[in-house]
């Protein structure tokens, strides 16, 4: 067991997979010699050399297209898109190419690749470098979408993503890069499609993703200590495949559902989960599910403004408390 940062976990995760399999290659802007703009790939170039760790031009379409062509012919590429907001300039690959080639070709083509990207707010970068775009990806049949909240999951889910035969969007949260967590020694391999109960509880289920997980846990601790409300916090981890079994199991126990989503309100992942719960566990619920999200606005840059719109532990405490206590 060793304590490392989320950033170092990215490095360790990529290295673990590149060491295991020569077909794993890595490309992106400023990722090789410079070690990445978030310093999340430092040392990989030195360790694996210029043929496997490659700097690219500022050509997001070329990066993702090349990853796809390499994947369909036998490599296992990891492509980095520096900021997830830039998905918008290469969305053709994410929406039309990766996820549809297998289906359209009736199973003749494969696309085993991983797109890593810096997602989420908290860095005061403004509306085009701070978005949470998980909902852009979740809605596309054929993709898998994961978003780790801690260093151990970064390594384990990245390994699972690289070994997965389908295209996986791997959303790293920029505001988590400096956070620390314990990771076991040796190889770590997790499974896609499994949520994790990170804090068991009996009175309400709180679902969260990435940066919202530590905030939900902090809120849950406060709700218990100050208001006697015992919340179960689930780290959703994987939006596709979605671990509905764990979610429905928790709701059937607590009878209350809250989602904490960093994405703007419309079409957030929580809306999909709420609809599933309404369909399949309506009579387990003691009250309407509540979505706690960023409001439906572009993200502002100033710290005081940005802090005011993302769900915070205080806001979560407040919503849960008023909902349960009336």
């Amino acid at each position: 067991m060793v304590e490392i940062t989320y950033r170092d976990a990215v490095i360790r995760g990529i290295a673990q997979e590149m060491q295991r399999d020569e077909d794993v290659v890595f490309l992106g802007e400023d990722v090789a010699k410079a070690g990445g703009v978030f310093k999340a790939t430092v040392g990989l170039y030195e360790q694996f050399g210029p043929l496997r760790v490659r700097d690219t031009p500022i050509s997001e379409q070329a990066i993702l297209g090349a990853a796809m062509g390499a994947a369909m012919t036998g490599l296992k590429p990891i492509a980095e898109i520096m900021f997830s907001d830039f998905f918008a300039v290469c969305f053709d690959y994410i929406a039309n190419e990766f996820p549809k080639s297998r289906y359209m070709s009736n199973g003749q083509l494969k696309c085993p690749l991983v797109v890593r990207t810096g997602n989420g707010a908290g860095s005061r970068f403004g509306a085009q470098h701070s978005q949470s775009v998980e909902n852009w990806c979740m809605m596309i049949p054929g993709l898998k979408v994961v978003a780790p909240s801690n260093p151990r999951d970064v390594i384990g889910l990245l390994a699972a993503a690289v070994r997965d035969p389908d295209p996986v969007i791997f959303l790293e949260h920029k505001s988590l890069y400096a956070t620390k967590g314990e990771v076991p020694d040796g190889e770590i391999v997790d499974t896609l499609g499994s949520a994790k109960i990170v804090r068991p509880g009996r009175d309400a289920t709180i679902l969260a993703l990435a940066l919202m997980v530590p905030r939900a846990v902090e809120a849950a601790d406060k709700l218990k200590a100050e208001h006697g409300i015992d919340c179960e916090v689930i780290d959703v981890r994987s939006l596709v495949p979605l671990d509905t079994r764990t979610i429905l199991g928790s709701v059937s126990k607590t009878h209350r559902l809250f989602t904490v989503e960093e994405n703007p309100r419309l079409c957030g992942w929580g809306a999909e989960i709420v609809s599933i719960v309404a369909d399949e566990a309506f009579y387990d619920l003691d009250g309407p599910p509540v979505r706690i999200t960023t409001p439906h606005i572009p993200l502002p840059a100033a710290d005081i403004l940005e802090d005011a719109v993302l769900p915070t532990p205080a806001r979560i405490v407040d919503r849960v408390k008023t909902t349960l206590n009336g």
Binding site: G65, A67, M68, G69, A70, M72
Partner: peptide, 17 residues
Amino acid sequence: GAHLPIACGAAWRAQYK
């Protein structure tokens, strides 16, 4: 235009291997 980068990727695989 989508397949020009994809062809690059297939060519990259040939070069790499």
